[in-house]
Design a protein around this nucleic acid. Structure first.
Lengths: 158, 158
DNA sequence: TGAAACCTGAGTAAAATACTCAGGAATAGA
DNA sequence: TCTATTCCTGAGTATTTTACTCAGGTTTCA
């Protein structure tokens, strides 16, 4: 019952995109620098986000990423599912349980999964980036940056 | 973002206790048989549940387990936390984030964690065992059992 | 006393996670 | 057309977590 770093990075990266990509394309290197995430790992992650249709990309020099749809139309559920490929709260199914011969908690997990999904789906990217704390952080990141590489983050561990 | 089998087993076992332990102590062997869970694994799991104060045990012959408090006072959150030791939806903290120098999504995860906890805490064991499907299953398990070992489950994989 | 049950610590195979790496393909601008 | 920039892809790998097993101990009832 925990979130993987993959899921966390995905949300962080999407917030970064939403905050900084008002007009321009954003490069992975910029996000990697600002959020202190390995570039290679981000590339792998953005593959998933792109396959899920959450972001668009432009190749080549001056290329980069942007949101594929409006901030209001992207939910936490969208991002986490894209990143992890599942929000798996079910009983697992497989050999020990199926619809014909369900386990004791089968319908319980099915219902919970549904409720949890609706909970995460109600949290939109637009809500997330509107919080005061996030706005403050984003501004700091812009101010202390030289080009795309922020100074104050360089002391953190990669 | 998924539930481990440990968490699933914990909930299943607690439901089993709630359904069958109206008066008597229930042995681990009985639960292991009915729910098709390895006895050794259950023992390890029940250690956690007992340390968390969710169940009481009586040693020796005729011993067994029972709920430590009323079904209404045990929530899904209680069980999952006891089993997994965390419902970890936070940003992880550690070297890349702390309260003094929080990451972009720090407060986001803190808030989400809280909301998710409240969601799970609102689901009480008494609600879970009241569902029609669970009642039906539990009755079948009693009827088809010889002693404590159910027949219709024996074909499943352990 | 001995069987039935809980109790404990330690170990281990398999799976998942969190990355890295090497190189290819598209595009902008010189 | 060349070169730098950027996305794109497949494959590999160390570490951590999960899901379990095992060997033996302790408590209690009859």
């Amino acid at each position: 019952m925990k979130l993987t770093t993959r899921g966390r990075y995905a949300v962080t990266a999407m917030m970064d995109l939403a905050l900084h990509a008002k007009l321009n394309r954003i490069t992975l290197a910029a996000i990697a620098g600002r959020q202190n995430i390995s570039l290679s790992y981000l590339e792998q992650l953005f593959r998933s986000l792109r396959n899920a249709g959450l972001i668009k990309s432009v190749r080549g020099a001056k290329g980069g990423y942007m949101l594929a749809r409006s901030e209001k139309e992207i939910s936490l559920a969208d991002i986490l599912i894209a990143a992890d490929e599942h929000i798996n709260l079910t009983c697992g199914g497989g050999s020990t349980c199926n619809d014909a011969d369900p386990c004791l908690t089968h319908s319980l997990w099915t219902n919970l999964s549904q409720e949890f999904f609706e909970f995460l789906d109600s949290k939109k990217l637009s809500d997330l980036v509107r919080s005061r704390h996030v706005q403050t952080m984003a501004t700091q990141q812009d101010v202390t940056s030289i080009g795309d590489i922020p100074i104050h983050i360089s002391s953190k561990i990669g």
